[in-house]
Amino acid sequence: MGEPLHDETFGRLEWDAVLKCWLGGIDWPPGLYTEVAIWLPNGDLAAGLHQARESLNWLRGHEEQARLAVAAEMVKVYNDAWRDEDEPITAAEFAGRTELARIGFEDDGSLLLSYDGRDMFGGHVIDGVFDADRSFSGGKLIG
């Protein structure tokens, strides 16, 4: 797709020919640099950016609930196989130890939220998938 572009919401975006998406980053949550990846529905840049803006607006109002949904599923994996503490931690404690690192705006309207679990999973990233209707469809470790 060629030349980098500037978007009012997402700032500088560069085309990644390998991933076939636009990559950039935003200052959100405030004070935190978060990578973004935007896939285009049917290759339509305007539609893809519009869809990504709508998804970001939803996420701004629901990131805490999204993080807790991911935490509720992944805390079991942590407590069962990765925990260093003597006692299991709660989903709320798990959520408090994570940080949003990347937002993937998929071409079908779904979201892929990638969280940095710091030292909980030995450096692995925690992905949470939210379908286009914003229902949580699962979490997994990456890397």
Rank of each mutant, 00 (worst) to 15 (best):
A37D: 02
D84W: 09
T9K: 05
I126R: 02
E8G: 11
G138L: 09
D84R: 12
I126P: 00
T98W: 02
E93F: 08
G25R: 05
L19Y: 13
E64W: 10
E35V: 11
G25F: 04
G109I: 01
M74H: 08
H62K: 11
R97K: 11
T90Y: 10
T9M: 09
G122Y: 11
G117S: 03
W28Y: 05
G122D: 04
F121E: 02
V129F: 14
G43F: 11
E63Q: 13
A71M: 05
V75K: 00
D80A: 08
H62N: 14
R12K: 10
A72I: 07
F105H: 03
G31V: 10
T98Y: 04
L112P: 10
A72W: 03
V18H: 15
D108S: 12
D44V: 09
V70D: 01
G123P: 06
K20D: 05
G104I: 08
F94P: 00
L5W: 03
L19M: 13
E3N: 14
L141I: 05
E73W: 05
R83W: 03
D27H: 06
A47K: 07
G109Y: 02
A47C: 07
W22C: 04
Y115P: 03
E63D: 11
F121C: 08
G122F: 08
T9H: 09
E93K: 08
S110E: 11
V77C: 07
R53A: 02
G24M: 04
G104P: 03
G43L: 09
D127Y: 13
A47T: 09
G143A: 14
S135I: 14
A91Y: 02
I26R: 00
E35L: 12
K140F: 12
D119M: 12
T90E: 10
Q51M: 15
D127C: 06
G109E: 02
G11E: 06
P29C: 04
Y115S: 04
G61L: 14
L5R: 07
L59Y: 01
T90H: 10
L112M: 15
W82T: 05
L5V: 11
